[in-house]
């Protein structure tokens, strides 16, 4: 686990990226580039939201990151002490209207398997938790202390690593149906969502 506290300034965002990728690589050096890109995309938007919205007009603030990876799952907690919001009140953008803003949370929701946000208050920080799963790239099954979702693991014509990037059943099915990979279902853990405003990947 890595904890760091960094200034809530866009110039420090690359530091957050580096920390997350270091934790990810330490857990599994063969995570597919697509999955890495999705994590970085989501983290970028989360970081932007804190800098641009939570701390707007509040002077210098800090962003705390708690990053952990185990059992084929990456967890990133983003904590701030700025203005919170109600995540369920944020609608998805109308993509047909070609929006120029308001896409950040949609990107997070789309690329991350499980997103929870707890609005802070008093001395409690706002906490965004993003959990991203990826299939084991070396033939290891993720831990399975509890079940609640099905992950499709791929093997066959393409290296397992190729299938590893896809971490939800629907998107994996899409790829595997095109490539003809074999599929089998394995149980993956779903952690309890103990906070209000939780979202699962659509």
């Amino acid at each position: 686990m890595v904890r760091l506290s960094i200034p809530a300034q866009l110039s420090f965002r690359d530091l957050a990226h580096s920390a997350v990728l270091a934790v990810l690589d330490a857990e599994d050096s063969e995570v597919h580039p697509d999955a890495r890109g999705e994590v970085i995309s989501a983290l970028s938007e989360a970081f932007n939201n804190v800098v641009i919205h939570a701390y707007r007009g509040m002077g210098d603030g800090q962003i705390e990151l708690v990053i952990d990876a185990a059992g084929g799952e990456l967890e990133i907690q983003v904590l701030d002490r700025g203005r919170g919001f109600e995540i369920d009140d944020v609608p998805d953008p109308d993509l047909d209207a070609l929006p120029e803003s308001g896409m950040g949370l949609f990107i997070i929701r789309s690329f991350i398997d499980q997103v929870t946000y707890t609005r802070g208050g008093g001395t409690a920080p706002n906490v965004l938790v993003m959990r991203k799963r990826w299939a084991a790239s070396r033939g290891e099954s993720p831990a399975s202390e509890s079940t609640g979702a099905t992950l499709v693991e791929c093997s066959g014509a393409s290296p397992g690593k190729e299938g590893a990037a896809r971490t939800d059943a629907s998107s994996t099915r899409k790829e595997t149906s095109q490539s003809g990979w074999r599929m089998r279902s394995v149980a993956v853990p779903i952690h309890a969502q103990s906070t209000a405003g939780s979202l699962k990947r659509k």
Binding site: I40, S44, L98, S101, M103
Partner: peptide, 16 residues
């Protein structure tokens, strides 16, 4: 190498 929603917003603005 990397784009976020703010970058996309400017490209969409150019397009429009």
């Amino acid at each position: 190498r990397l784009i976020d929603s703010s970058g996309v917003g400017v490209i969409v603005m150019l397009f429009k």
